[in-house]
């Protein structure tokens, strides 16, 4: 075993982010290993979204250190290994779920042996593959975005409020995807202020304070 293999996937040390020189959240220390699920908890405005955007590489950390597999975090190293799903779903309304997925696969790549049609069926969009996303309901749009989780090869998922807009079956779907991802050696950070029914052991929790 090399040092890189034993090092945690993601390690934050006194990580903080300032907006207009005001800290958005108190300095954070945490580690995320492969096969681990982390819940990011906190009230509205506690900086959950900011933290996830920071970890994805959309924001610069104001203070502290971020390490990826034991090395300093670098965009070009992590880009293909992190999947970020935020409030904005990144779905083009004029395109169908299938076309949106095809574009995502062209840019981010595709897991071996996974087809867009199968993925869309799995998230419950069978029959809607070629409908423009504009005509789908909010929950169905969310499902179309979740399909990317199954299609793209990524080790670390950063999911911002993945349960929003979803019905009971949709919530079960997210939990199923997370369990399978973690069981397969992936890791995930999930922000949510609701309770999460996760069956794969007790997840690590990060409490956010402003």
């Amino acid at each position: 075993m090399t040092a890189a293999a034993t090092a945690p996937l993601l390690e934050a040390h006194r990580l903080s982010f300032h907006r207009q020189d005001e800290p958005v959240f108190a300095p954070l220390d945490f580690r995320v290993h492969e096969g681990e699920l982390v819940l990011v908890e906190g009230d509205n405005g506690s900086g959950k979204t900011t933290l996830l955007r920071l970890l994805a590489g959309l924001l610069h950390a104001s203070e502290g250190r971020l390490q990826w597999r034991g090395e300093p975090w670098r965009r070009d190293v992590c880009a293909g290994e992190i999947l970020f799903l935020g409030h904005h779903l990144g779905q083009k309304l004029e395109l169908s779920p299938r076309e949106n997925l095809a574009f995502a696969a062209g840019l981010h790549g595709r897991r071996d042996g996974v087809s867009p049609a199968a993925v869309l069926e799995e998230v419950g969009l069978a029959g809607y593959e070629d409908e423009p996303v504009r005509r789908l309901s909010a929950g169905q749009k969310k499902r179309a975005a979740l399909a990317r989780l199954l299609l793209q090869p990524a080790v670390l998922w950063l999911l911002d409020e993945p349960y929003a807009n979803l019905d009971r079956h949709g919530i079960a779907l997210v939990n199923r995807l997370l369990e399978r991802h973690v069981a397969g050696g992936g890791a995930a950070l999930v922000s949510s202020h609701g309770a999460v029914g996760f069956h794969g052991g007790e997840p690590q929790r990060i409490r956010m304070h402003a």
Binding site: A56, G57, L58, D76, A79, G80, I82, F84, G86, H87, H88, L89, G90, Q91, K92, L93, A104, L107, H108, G109
Partner: peptide, 22 residues
């Protein structure tokens, strides 16, 4: 404009492709 609104631009920035070329 529309890419910023719907989050496509974030996904483009995060993709493992050279941003300038995209």
């Amino acid at each position: 404009a529309s890419d910023i609104e719907d989050g496509s631009l974030e996904q483009l920035v995060l993709s493992p492709q050279p941003l300038a070329l995209m």
